[in-house]
Design a protein around this nucleic acid. Structure first.
Length: 136
DNA sequence: GCCAACGTTGGC
DNA sequence: GCCAACGTTGGC
């Protein structure tokens, strides 16, 4: 069964639109062990919310894991890995951080509990709640 | 631009 | 191995 995740990106660095234009990307730049462990936990076919930090502060789309963790090509340090992600679809309505914070069902969401973590896991329940908010 | 949260580093 | 100092992230 597929698992669910959430990744954050600063739009000026790598936005959803850029992601869609590229068609696929490797998720690099993770330099935090907890986030790294989450990357390693991703399996092919898992779904990933794409969140814009700093600007927007909202989940804008859904991506899919197309290749599981492998050595980060941007460094020789074997501590770090990347995964390949592909855009699946844009949310009908973006879901903002404020909306998520306001919903009691999402109080345990990694994004809210640990705002600085760039890759976090999302439970099936949380995924469902957010999809509902997004207008699916 | 400020500040809180939190991870990392380094002295002991 | 503890803990203070420091750096970074990200919301506001």
């Amino acid at each position: 069964m597929a698992a669910y995740w959430l990744v954050k990106s600063e739009p000026f660095k790598y936005s959803w639109d850029q992601f869609v234009k590229d068609g696929q990307t490797f998720w690099d730049g993770v330099r935090n062990y907890q986030a790294r462990n989450n990357l390693r936990g991703m399996k092919k076919g898992d779904l990933v919310f794409f969140y814009h930090s700093n600007e927007g502060l909202e989940i804008v789309g859904i991506a899919k894991v197309v290749k599981e963790a492998y050595q980060d090509p941007t460094t020789d340090d074997t501590n770090w890995v990347v995964v390949d992600l592909k855009p699946v679809k844009k949310l009908p309505k973006p879901v903002t951080l404020a909306q998520m914070k306001a919903d009691i069902r999402l109080e345990k969401l990694g994004l809210i509990k640990q705002g600085r973590l760039s890759v976090s896991s999302v439970t099936v329940e949380e995924w469902g709640v957010i999809e509902e908010m997004a207008g699916f």
